[in-house]
Design a protein around this nucleic acid. Structure first.
Length: 326
DNA sequence: AATGGCGGCAACCGCCTAAAC
DNA sequence: CGTTTAGGCGGTTGCCGCCAT
């Protein structure tokens, strides 16, 4: 049987969304909450198919989305998670709660792939490793990306400045308009990469605040706990900043492993020997006992877990190396 | 100033999955 | 238990703006 289209093709508008359409969509979701996308076009009069509405909301209009300016830290997360999970953009996005899978996918395809290729090209001419390069630390040893062996020999390249269009800015404004509603509305986003309902950028959240504002929606990682000073000053990052960046990455990565191990295996060994970055399991226990979990990330497969633990120990090795350097 | 090339990104397409019936 | 279908996901396309010539 031929699969029917998700919507009638006739009379369906395609192409970029207009601010008017966005406002209609946002107003409707504000009233009814996200979901039941099938009914959105008919109830709003939008000449868009349900999928288009859903995509527009999840990738663009949803409050709390951070756009542009991927930090080196985020780059590292993406690179490592891509190596770990493959092109599972939705899964990767679940660990970067303020980024959409589409955004991450685009960034990977347009920026990171090229950068990694550059690194590979560079490594062909320079066998000696520069041990302070971030990329090196984020990558599992001998890891291949799209059949290209990746190594390192250069420093972090700052991401492009915010290249959002004029209209993108207006969409952000729409998101801001929703901020108040999201705090009080009984409706919550119900997709897998659910986000904190506040549009507060995590740069604004202090480490202390983090303990009390930890999202239940992204429980496996408390990504938003990154300390603000670590991800500021993307350009011209000095070595100690870079170290801090990597440290926080490692900390959160270990957090992943830690929580996984707490939930399914009490014999976590990931960081016990590090001496530099010990997982504060008491803290984790406190953070999660304090409030019941509403949703959890899907359990890692055996292979993923194994890879994760391995990568953790690799990063820890680098941390020890770096601690002797700095 | 005109134009052709290129890169970035929003949006579409088609397949897959799981829930509903 | 089989069928239907909404929603989710990853790959791809095409538009638009920037830059070099």
């Amino acid at each position: 049987m031929v699969r029917p289209p998700c919507c009638e093709k006739a009379g369906i508008k395609k192409g970029p969304w207009t601010p008017e359409e966005d406002i209609i969509l946002v107003s409707y979701i504000q009233e009814h909450g996200p979901g039941n996308w099938r009914s959105v076009p008919t109830n709003t009069g939008l000449l868009r198919c349900s999928k288009s509405c859903r995509l527009r909301w999840t990738n663009y209009l949803r409050p709390g989305i951070k756009r542009g300016n991927f930090t080196p830290h985020e780059e590292g997360m993406i690179i490592h998670l891509q190596a770990l999970l493959g092109n599972k953009w939705a899964a990767i996005a679940s660990y970067l709660p303020q980024r959409t899978d589409n955004d991450i996918k685009n960034y990977w395809n347009t920026h990171l792939k090229k950068k990694l290729k550059k690194f590979q090209m560079g490594s062909d001419h320079n066998i000696h490793h520069n041990s302070t390069s971030s990329y090196h630390h984020f990558m599992p040893k001998n890891q291949e990306y799209n059949n290209e062996r990746v190594s390192d020999n250069s420093s972090v390249v700052a991401t492009d400045p915010n290249s959002a269009s004029v209209y993108a800015s207006s969409a952000e404004n729409i998101s801001r308009l929703l901020e108040g509603w999201m705090r009080t509305s009984p409706f919550q986003p119900n997709n897998n990469h659910e986000i904190k309902t506040s549009t507060t950028n995590y740069r604004d959240i202090s480490a202390e605040e983090c303990d009390t504002t930890t999202s239940t929606a992204v429980p496996a990682l408390n990504i938003q706990c990154y300390k603000p000073e670590i991800i500021e000053n993307v350009e011209g990052m000095n070595p100690s900043d870079e170290l801090q960046c990597i440290l926080s990455y490692n900390h959160n990565l270990n957090g992943m492993a830690c929580e996984k191990s707490v939930s399914c295996d009490s014999s976590h060994k990931g960081s016990e020997n590090s001496g530099l970055i010990m997982i504060d399991q008491e803290k984790f226990r406190f953070m999660h006992e304090d409030k019941p979990k509403i949703e959890t990330n899907p359990p890692l497969s055996f292979l993923e877990k194994w890879l994760l633990e391995e990568s953790c120990s690799q990063v820890e090795g680098v941390m020890q190396e770096l601690s002797s350097i700095f």
